[in-house]
Nucleic acid binder design. Structure first.
Lengths: 333, 333
DNA sequence: TTGAAAGCGCTACCAC
DNA sequence: GTGGTAGCGCTTTCAA
């Protein structure tokens, strides 16, 4: 079924049929009715590829995330997408599983779709990609990676500040043996998180003992990490997780080991994903306002599209510590 | 940047450039090299719309789900997509928030994209849509809704059996006051779930008291439902949730009310989503093999595409009760 | 091994 | 108000 079929059946030209179907231009009412009827009878669906080829400006935004199974990313997507849909855009997501080869493929695919803007919410990065995207004139938002440029808005979270507050809080309630559980230490942004922990630890040299373990970004990953940590004999009184997704598994595994949270061990996450409130004990974590990030990203994309190159912009978000039930005073020695 | 730009720069025709970029046809090695170099220098990205307009068969599958924030749907997507990517396809998802108006819009958008197949994993349904999709020759997989047809594969779960097993189990350990927490009772498949509960209850008429509460499909919805239930004074010894997503909130709210699970109240979910194992107590639930469903859906789509109309097919999945820690003997009166 | 050219389905501009 | 038609960028015969 093509526009031509519809036009033919309605006894009009494709031009007129197109006008009717796009609610553009003036068409006699009787004609409009005929076209609509024909389209309906033929179950006509405009070919979107043809449409965008024909030069209509794209109302599609692209979004690439590292791990769509981590609610952190999913929430940003939902926020951005909700805002986009409300304003007549649609958004296509792709996820990379933290693999930069997939990032490259996704970017290519997005560029091939001729989207109107791209949000890149990932932790992995290929240097050439940044260059390529910077060189293009596509409106772009980077989270966590990349640098502001003519067409690029950068959003980042002051991760280190959140980490520092967490450590200070734990220190203040007596913790002197802390462990950090992370994932993908090989990726820059994640390495920075680990570094944030280590740097903070450096302030307490000699006073606070610490260690570090790495696994996968999933509750199961957290569980494995916890097991490894516990089996190592380090005996932490507090476990700081790089994110809530992994903290979920940590909480679970501690229980398996017969350890009580927070009486025996305190646990913290990062992100404040929805279920952090539903775990038990509920999770002390650092809030990253994902809804806000999604909205900011959408707006940045749209503005750049409108204003063209209006100078670079960097948005820094200050995360906030949320104390819940999973943390408490360190157990007496 | 168009193919023509590349061709020009390489001093060849667009036909040759196309051959090179698609690794199709024989091209002299020196020519190939020139084209590749030109494409690289120009940062050329083929326009996917033009490509598919030009008649290349689509390698894109579509998927529509009701609630992408419910891990049940997300898992099916990840499974289907993983399989698809492995086999050189890509898949675009859309979600409807259980609104059939959005379902209609999504289907139109998918049809407009000229996808190669569509998986419709939703609970809401517009009757005209089923007809329309059945009339089309697009390979389709329905989960939970629709009926098998020439081009349609149907996957459904024997929900009622899982519900029956759950109730029988709870009955056997002494429960006589059961409550069901659901969502969207107005939608057919969800109504059937509720009905499955009521029908099962009917077998124990006079013996088991029951009630029903409806809220939203989210942990918060479950929480609100639990609150309502508890405040009603019904005093259930067991709460059966339509899915794990809501059970999460129920578990949490019971704790707020100072009720212990399962000592005071037993709780069951449905789906066996990943975190069901990470809650505490871990959740007794009914397993629906989402990974398998995703794979089956993908295969059905591909096969239909290959064989064309090879007759209708219905796949029924028998769910399995998974007993964990959230259920136990009913408290003594 | 390569090039010329005919579309794919649609929109938009220009006439009538 | 409506129709004719020139592309949009690409793939794919058909010839050379």
């Amino acid at each position: 079924m093509t526009l031509e079929d519809v036009a033919k059946r309605a006894g009009v030209s494709t031009a007129t049929a197109s006008r009717v179907l796009n609610k553009a231009g003036v068409v006699k009412d009787s004609t409009r009715r005929r076209v609509l009827k024909a389209a309906e009878e033929l179950r006509y669906h405009p070919n979107l590829h043809a449409r965008s080829l024909a030069g209509v400006k794209s109302h599609t935004l692209g979004m690439i995330v590292s791990n769509i199974e981590n609610p952190f990313f999913l929430d940003i997507f939902c926020s951005l997408e909700g805002e986009a849909v409300r304003q007549g855009y649609e958004v296509v997501v792709e996820h990379t599983g933290y693999r930069s080869s997939r990032l490259v493929a996704s970017v290519r695919s997005m560029l091939g779709r001729r989207i109107a803007g791209l949000a890149v919410i990932v932790s992995e990065m290929e240097h050439s990609l940044i260059e390529e995207l910077t060189a293009s004139s596509l409106p772009i938002v980077f989270y966590d990676v990349g640098h502001p440029a003519r067409n690029i808005t950068n959003i980042k979270v002051h991760y280190e500040a959140g980490m520092r507050r967490t450590v200070e809080y734990l220190y203040s309630i007596g913790h002197r043996r802390m462990a950090f559980i992370g994932h993908h230490a090989g990726l820059d942004p994640l390495h920075e998180r680990l570094k944030a922990f280590l740097d903070t630890m450096a302030r307490y040299t000699g006073e606070v003992h610490h260690t570090t373990v790495v696994s996968e970004d999933s509750p199961s990953g957290g569980r494995r990490a916890a097991r490894q940590l516990l089996d190592s004999g380090f005996g932490p009184t507090a476990i700081l997780c790089v994110n809530d997704n992994m903290a979920l598994g940590v909480l679970r595994e501690l229980k398996n080991y017969g350890l009580s949270v927070p009486a025996d061990v305190s646990v913290t996450g990062y992100d404040n994903i929805g279920i952090a409130e539903f775990t038990c004990p509920s999770l002390t974590t650092v809030d990253i306002p994902r809804g806000q990030i999604g909205k900011l990203a959408f707006e940045a994309l749209i503005q750049r599209q409108a204003n063209g190159a209006n100078g670079c912009r960097e948005i820094v978000i200050e995360p906030q510590l949320i104390v819940r039930e999973s943390t408490g005073p360190a157990p007496a020695e």
